[in-house]
Design a protein around this nucleic acid. Structure first.
Lengths: 235, 235
DNA sequence: GTCTATAGCTGGATAGAC
DNA sequence: GTCTATCCAGCTATAGAC
């Protein structure tokens, strides 16, 4: 209505040839991709319930109806996000785990924890699109007791999680399985809290401690967790 | 409109004597208390944005307008919840910390961590009102990057948090302050994730590991974290 | 103090033009 | 495929009867 009322004629030149020259500029993403990028960041920052389709479509500069068209619903959009991001993380984890065992029959606990934690903290970080969006989003969903989030997370990560629990247990034969599982749970907590980067520790330490610095976070987290895993099992 | 149109007269007998017999039954809570109890549980389960005033007032069997009357707004309700619960937790922490130092000039790290973690995991657990509602709520807010949550949490816990960081550091003089702070951050992660009780570890271990069992969780968590704190500082 | 009723928006979803 | 226009259920907050 704004600009289409004038110059209605001669659509031939502009729209009659949809072939050729698909991606005219490097930064021109499709509507679908723009929605995914923006939704990832906004879901991470404000939660699933904290942001509406109107805010997402406005920020992505697409029409409100685009989300229904491309993803069916808001929940479909979240599932598409996970379908795109979670599988690569689980795959990279298993690839790194396999490499641990290629290089040594008895890899150190530190190397196994690194294989587990590094993909979670580093994949999905896209500085050009507002930083570690998917990392935060995953942390957020990981802490929620909502059924929907749990099912999506379980589907994406259950298999690789169990392989890591087994790999950790194999290196700590003196620990009962249940002890390993509790400690794995505490590791998830430290990992998610680091990924969530809520800002609490920054304000508490006047900025000295910054979980957003992924390299540094891993550098501190892995020895801390490894020592916890190795400590004597509780009686 | 339903029943008040009839029998309008003689209000003397029923309402002229508001004194005496305040709490007729042990389980009869005031409107304000019913709202607090229900909101605590529903905020914990679905998040601040995930539940509306209609759902809260319906579950509490009070009128929709009651929340505005008693708390001013939805956010005022959240603040009232924290005003009621957070201060006792911080107080109990400091009381237990003081007792550590009364009993020994150099209390063990385990005792200090217990003084920090136990009040967070146990206070606010009210089995008669749907379980550890405030505990879950706090975990949820603790992981969110929203400003409002952060300010409320900081106001309630900053002071006691710093005292604990100092107490931990005092017992580990070989650790740089920054290392202590990172490890405190990881401890918060394990604590919040246990408090959130998202259900992830239960499904991953077929129910063997249950963070809802507070005694057991502390029993496993404290040695794990203590070993992490004591491990050699990273170079 | 407690209620009804409603104002004033915004939520997700969709029908149908183009 | 993309848009406009709209539905209606839900939201928070408030005015005013009783």
């Amino acid at each position: 209505m704004r600009r289409s009322s004038a110059l209605k004629k001669s659509p031939a030149k502009a729209s009659a040839a949809p072939h050729r020259a698909r991606k005219p500029v490097a930064s021109a993403l499709s509507v679908r991709e723009r929605i995914l990028v923006v939704a990832e960041r906004m879901f991470a920052e404000h939660g699933m319930e904290g942001v509406g389709l109107r805010a997402i479509t406005a920020a992505a500069r697409v029409n409100l109806a685009s989300i229904a068209y491309h993803f069916g619903s808001k929940e479909g959009l979240l599932e598409a996000l996970f379908a795109q991001r979670a599988a690569p993380i689980a795959q990279e984890r298993l690839r790194l785990l396999a490499r641990c065992f290629e290089e040594s029959k008895t890899p150190t606990l530190e190397r196994i924890l690194d294989a587990f934690l590094r993909p979670a903290l580093t994949l999905g970080v896209q500085p050009q699109f507002g930083g570690p969006a998917f990392v935060k989003l995953r942390a957020r969903l990981g802490t929620e007791p909502e059924m929907m989030s749990r099912k999506i997370l379980a589907k994406a990560f259950d298999q690789s999680s169990r392989q890591f629990i087994d790999a950790i247990a194999q290196g700590l034969p003196q620990q009962p399985g249940e002890e390993i599982e509790w400690r794995y749970h505490f590791m998830l907590g430290a990992m998610f809290y680091t990924m969530a980067n809520s800002g609490r520790i920054q304000s508490l330490t006047d900025g000295r401690c910054d979980p957003g610095d992924v390299k540094l976070a891993l550098h501190h987290m892995i020895p801390f967790l490894a020592a916890g895993f190795r400590s004597a099992p509780v009686p």
